[in-house]
């Protein structure tokens, strides 16, 4: 059995590493009965937002998808991108575990099986000047990547700008923008240290990638093969949550080597609070769309996180 597996992100991204890990584990468990051909960097022509239907229709048997953009299909997928809900990797993992049954249900209703989740390193602020106090975000021209970020940073008096990722570097180069909201990983991949000097870990959000497969393809497997797929998926999830911790440390080392100031402990609590307050609008908006289910997840999460 041969599967083509698209992934919008580069071959060196944390999600690509997870896909390779999954493929190896699966091949081992099935004695090579199931092999996967990876298509990284969007090379099969799909963006993440396309992959939900592509897997449902069997255009591809399996895909690794950044789920934020799927929120236009079901608002539940916005959960992991909500600002300042999970403020550490441990909390992000807990949030995933609490919400997992709900994600599984959505996939199942759309002829798919959810296999594993792979987290992004937490997003922070890359900037030309230190952003550690509430005053620092005022009038900051910052590129945000989704609607929530736009709303949140607008509310704290910053100037969020929407730009395609391809335009970010030219705009940084010429001073059109002064800051970028993205993960340590994403910024490192684009060598943002050539233009920016400071990174503030504000733990804005830890968005998720999810790997999902076509249910018909899954059901057509032998029980042993199905077992192997689920086992490999479980192992990959664990592996990815461990890997993201290492990536975070590794990213910070690389950034420092390239002369950046990485602010982790010296980000003032006031700044975090101002941002978190601004983020509440986005959370309220999400609760309105998801209703009881959304509230139930957040309550359960708060309870287990001891918040």
């Amino acid at each position: 059995i041969e599967w083509d597996m698209p992934n919008e992100y580069n071959a060196t991204s944390i999600h690509a590493l997870g896909d390779k890990y999954f493929a190896d584990a699966l091949s081992q468990k099935t004695d090579g009965e199931i092999t996967i051909t990876h298509h990284f960097g969007g090379s099969l022509g799909y963006k993440s937002v396309d992959q939900f239907d592509a897997v449902a229709d069997g255009a591809v048997p399996i895909a690794d998808t950044f789920v934020g953009p799927l929120s236009g299909i079901d608002p539940m997928f916005l959960l992991s991108s909500l600002p300042f809900v999970a403020s550490s990797i441990d909390e992000a993992k807990l949030l995933w575990e609490v919400a997992r049954p709900y994600y599984e249900k959505i996939f199942e209703e759309n002829n798919q099986k959810l296999l594993y989740a792979s987290p992004w390193p937490p997003s922070g602020i890359w900037s030309k000047t230190p952003v550690i106090a509430p005053g620092d975000v005022k009038t900051l021209k910052i590129r945000t990547y989704d609607a929530n970020g736009t709303i949140t940073f607008r509310d704290v008096g910053a100037a969020p700008i929407q730009l395609s990722w391809a335009d970010v570097v030219p705009q940084l180069n010429t001073g059109g923008i002064g800051a970028v909201l993205t993960s340590a990983d994403g910024g490192a991949a684009a060598s943002l240290w050539e233009y920016l000097s400071d990174f503030s870990e504000v733990n804005y959000a830890s968005p998720l990638n999810m790997t999902h497969m076509n249910l018909d393809v899954f059901n057509a497997l032998t029980p042993e093969q199905q077992e192997a797929v689920l086992e490999a998926a479980e192992e990959t999830t664990e592996h990815q949550w461990q890997l993201v911790r290492e990536r975070r440390v590794g990213n910070y080392d690389t950034m420092r080597e390239n002369g950046m100031n990485v602010h982790v402990d010296d980000v003032s609590p006031e700044l975090l609070e101002v941002l978190a307050t601004a983020g509440e609008a986005a959370i309220a908006d999400w609760l309105e769309k998801t209703g009881e289910t959304g509230q139930k997840i957040l309550d359960e999460f708060a309870e287990q996180a001891g918040k």
């Binding site: 009038t139 021209k141 609607a147 736009t150 100037a159 969020p160 700008i161 929407q162 059109g176």
Partner: peptide
Amino acid sequence: LRNLFDTSTFVTA
């Protein structure tokens, strides 16, 4: 908007 008013339409692309 970006150059004169420090804002954006947020939907250009």
